[in-house]
Computed example of a mutant assay.
Amino acid sequence: MTQQQETGCVLRLFGAQSTAVGKTVENFPPQWRAAARWKSRGAETLVALQAQSPSGLKKAAQALRQAFSADLYGAGETTLPAAVVEALERHDKLLICADAAAGALLEARLENLPGAEKVFDFGAVSYANPKTGPLIEKRARARLPKDCTDPLRQALARAQAARRVVGADLSAACAERESDCVLVLSCRKGCFLRTVPAGENPALWLLDIIRRTAANKPQAEGTGFLPARRAAKKDVLPSPQPRRHPLRRVCMTLLVLALLAALAAVGAWKYTNGNFYALPEQLRALLTEHVPRPGATLV
């Protein structure tokens, strides 16, 4: 049993590309005598390492930890929710939910974990509170245009309002749409956003965004960020502007050139009294009129 623990281990990743894991394993030096097998389910990847010596196992594990430092959330039997609670507790962060949709994603996965009540309110002081909940909605509506029905804008406004009302470090919200949902996590620097298709697991993605934010680690590819200044504006998600057709620009340029040519022709007509053939001679005389002749003295 002891020998097996020394020569094998399991690393858990979330958000890492399976092809990237394969390339890292291929680069293991032969002297490590280490091998790896990995399996992905959705965005989660489990990597089983085996080595013929403890030193080789240590070097192989360290190589994976360095290559996937932000994606690695634990080893052995560690779960992603447990890693989230550990990250929040270690960095002294308080997490709340701004709406029931986000609460449904997180509460069931965190409720039985030791220490979760220290870093997560389970809605007690946020959206589910009889006094705080309506206040969050009121503050959120004040940040939006009166006719706004976009669920993403509403979730974004709720997440920011809830974080300020409660005084929490992190505030999660979820915009549910027909074919997907958009996860929102508000922090002091701004808001992280990620669109999750209906077939994927939004709860795990939200947990991973929280874990990375609490530990100040880079987000997974595909997770966007909205700085605090932009997130505070009512028109934070402007509708796309109509694209100008390139042919219109060409026509406008040609029209301007034609107008300039017409003005030049009118000026030449007046300058030569209608005799265009005399224009070159008159221009030559105009240019040489003030040129000093040889032997002349400048005054």
Score class of each variant (00 low, 15 high):
15 G>E: 01
275 N>F: 02
290 H>G: 03
3 Q>I: 09
110 L>F: 04
249 R>S: 10
26 E>H: 10
242 P>L: 02
118 K>P: 00
242 P>K: 00
173 A>S: 12
248 R>D: 05
254 L>D: 05
205 W>V: 07
252 M>F: 07
2 T>M: 08
152 L>V: 15
97 C>N: 12
116 A>S: 15
208 D>T: 06
118 K>M: 00
137 E>M: 14
212 R>N: 04
53 S>F: 06
276 F>D: 00
162 A>T: 12
193 L>D: 02
52 Q>H: 10
178 E>G: 02
145 P>V: 08
129 N>Y: 04
47 V>R: 01
175 A>W: 07
58 K>F: 07
24 T>H: 01
104 A>R: 03
102 A>N: 02
85 V>A: 12
269 W>D: 12
166 V>P: 02
127 Y>H: 15
52 Q>K: 13
24 T>C: 14
51 A>I: 05
169 D>E: 07
70 A>I: 04
140 A>N: 08
38 W>M: 11
212 R>A: 12
263 L>A: 13
189 K>E: 13
197 P>T: 08
134 P>L: 06
156 L>Y: 07
170 L>F: 11
179 S>A: 07
187 C>I: 01
269 W>T: 10
20 A>C: 06
142 A>D: 11
186 S>N: 03
51 A>G: 13
158 R>Y: 04
296 A>P: 02
218 P>I: 03
196 V>D: 06
262 A>E: 07
117 E>M: 11
80 L>T: 12
176 E>P: 04
282 Q>N: 09
178 E>Y: 10
160 Q>F: 02
156 L>P: 04
91 H>N: 13
73 Y>V: 07
174 C>M: 04
280 P>Y: 00
127 Y>F: 15
225 F>M: 05
290 H>S: 11
277 Y>I: 06
100 A>V: 13
36 A>K: 15
259 L>A: 15
292 P>V: 08
152 L>I: 14
247 L>V: 14
206 L>G: 07
36 A>Q: 11
236 V>H: 15
43 A>Q: 05
65 R>E: 12
